[in-house]
């Protein structure tokens, strides 16, 4: 099976140019500017596959790049109002915010496009000399004689649907590192293999997930309330099905609206997509979007297992 491939040696190979992978790359260069670091990203550019809410807590960024404002980070809309709503089919009840424990408050947080923040993080990493390879999915793990992870295969190209090699076939490259950091986000395809091979989940509970669907809308000026952050639970999901919605107003007349359904739902007839579409018709939601335009749509799984499901984090050759 093993195919002859060229290989390249790095100090650290990172799989995934998301917030985790890029933060690792930047931190490595801040500590030791001479380290050679490759970051592989399956999307056509860093940020192309990133989909998030997103209200972000700047605590980690303050630590990583304290002068992010001066460096032009696309983080501008501060949260001004935080609402928690319980929806019925026709009405809604707001939960008074003093009932919410302090950790649930969003003051001091920002509404952003995480995709844009990721693109910006990628430019910060590149300025420090990190090599980012967009369009290069890491498709296979490579192990050394002792069984430790030595690197990954990336950039295999030109295999036809039936498996034969087309004229423009490229075998890809092996990227070797002293350490390999896997930062694929929720349900990574290489992480899945590592979990199985090194039995990393042996002492934790099964990982739990949700599916998050999101649309970006441009809404009329009079409907736009920059910094308003709303979270809803209840209708259209029944009480036994976990999930809820977010509505974030930000930027220039933009509203990020999304729906999360916990994937432990029992009824196989449930369609997260249709629940989301139906949710937007609720009398408290529809007026915000009316007269507006849908600009983008997408979805991404979210890990929800929390503390109980955090697997073992390291394996020979990386994490």
């Amino acid at each position: 099976m093993a195919e002859e491939r060229e290989s390249m040696e790095y100090d650290v190979v990172i799989v995934g140019a998301g917030p985790a992978g890029l933060s690792a790359a930047i931190r490595l260069k801040q500590i030791s500017p001479d380290l050679t670091i490759a970051v592989l990203e399956k999307g056509a550019e860093a940020g192309a596959h990133i989909l998030s809410g997103a209200v972000i807590d700047p605590v980690a960024l303050n630590d990583l790049i304290p002068d992010w404002k001066a460096r032009g980070a696309p983080i501008e809309t501060e949260v001004t109002k935080d609402e928690y709503l319980f929806l019925g089919p026709a009405g809604s009840a707001a939960l008074p915010s003093f009932l919410m424990p302090p950790l649930m408050h969003n003051h001091g947080n920002y509404v952003v496009s995480l995709g844009m923040v990721t693109r910006w993080l990628a430019t910060q990493a590149e300025e420090l000399g990190v090599e980012i390879y967009p369009g290069f999915p890491a498709s296979e793990l490579v192990f050394d004689e002792s069984g430790a992870v030595k690197g990954v295969v990336a950039g295999v190209f030109g295999v036809a649907r039936d498996g034969h090699k087309k004229g423009d076939y490229q075998p890809g490259m092996e990227l070797h590192g002293k350490y390999v950091l896997i930062a694929e986000g929720a349900r990574g395809s290489l992480a899945k293999q590592l979990l199985a091979r090194f039995d990393l989940g042996a002492e934790s509970e099964p990982q739990k997930f949700g599916i998050g669907l999101k649309e970006l809308w441009e809404v009329p000026q009079e409907r736009h309330r920059p910094g308003l952050v709303q979270h809803c639970v209840g209708w259209p999901l029944d009480d036994k099905t976990g999930g809820g919605a977010f509505i974030y107003h930000w930027g220039d007349r933009l509203v990020s609206i999304g729906y999360v359904v916990h994937l432990n739902y029992r009824n196989p007839w449930l369609s997260p997509f249709d629940e989301f579409q139906r949710f937007k018709q609720h009398p408290i939601v529809r007026p915000t979007l009316e007269g507006g335009k849908r600009l983008a749509y997408g979805g991404r799984a979210i890990t929800e297992g929390g503390l109980q499901s955090v697997p073992k984090l390291t394996f020979p050759g990386g994490r």
């Binding site: 985790a20 690792a24 931190r27 630590d63 990583l64 950091l181």
Partner: peptide, 16 residues
């Protein structure tokens, strides 16, 4: 909180 970004960044930094 549906928030993971800051923890993803923190774990990236810790691994680094």
């Amino acid at each position: 909180r549906i928030k993971g970004t800051h923890n993803a960044m923190r774990s990236g930094m810790m691994a680094a």
